[in-house]
Nucleic acid binder design. Structure first.
Lengths: 109, 109
DNA sequence: TTGACTCGTAAGGAATACCTTACCTATAGT
DNA sequence: ACTATAGGTAAGGTATTCCTTACGAGTCAA
């Protein structure tokens, strides 16, 4: 075997709609697995597997409370996505784009 | 078969590092396939296949010029990513966070 | 202790992803 | 017409993804 370390990629973790939805649900508050699974058609083990992917990516943490496990969002881990997409901001932010064009024209502000 | 339409998902399209890199390269200027493939280890057909995925997702357009095909970025198509990630902005933007806490305290500005 | 409940994990299968090499068409230059 | 270049596509192999059902471990309550 060659593969030494398959570091979990954030972009891969958020590529599945169900996992993005899980993160969205966790924005409001922590949730147990069953509380999350209630929002999905898929089986509870499937949700568990998605949670494990998010956990491996560091996007959520797990806190055991009795027989429940509560998952909490770790929003800082979304930074790579935020940073990457920010490189494209000038294309859709009209104000910034006008500012940039202004600056490129070499005029003073 | 059941699957009627597999609409291409933007998040899936950007989940692969090579495809994000292609988009990054296209920020500067349009590029031909060979000009792009020069930046990768993988074979040119592999790059072509990644380009087709980006094309199907609407993230790039193709313009034929002689025997070359130039690919151009369509940054507006990244809007779903921008919109989704923007829901998490308050977690990492200190200024917005302070503003929000301020508002949540019910104080006037 | 017995039973119900929460949840993870194993096993397995179907579909998809992602690479390779081989080959094809189209265009350009001589 | 011939040759080289640009690049799409087919075929095929391997790995990964994503679901299912079955089962097991830990917790709680009677």
């Amino acid at each position: 075997m060659v593969t030494p370390n398959r570091e979990p990629d954030i972009f891969t973790a958020i590529s599945h709609p169900a996992r993005r939805r899980i993160l969205d649900l966790l924005v409001e508050t922590d949730r147990s697995v069953n509380a999350l699974a209630g929002d999905f058609q898929m089986s509870r083990p499937a949700v568990s597997q998605h949670l494990r992917i998010l956990l491996n990516a560091g996007l959520v943490t797990e806190r055991r409370q009795g027989r429940e496990r509560h998952y909490r969002l770790v929003p800082e881990r979304l930074a790579p996505v935020r940073d990457w997409i920010s490189h494209y901001e000038r294309f859709w932010d009209d104000r910034l784009q006008r500012l940039q064009e202004h600056l490129l024209r070499g005029e003073d502000l």
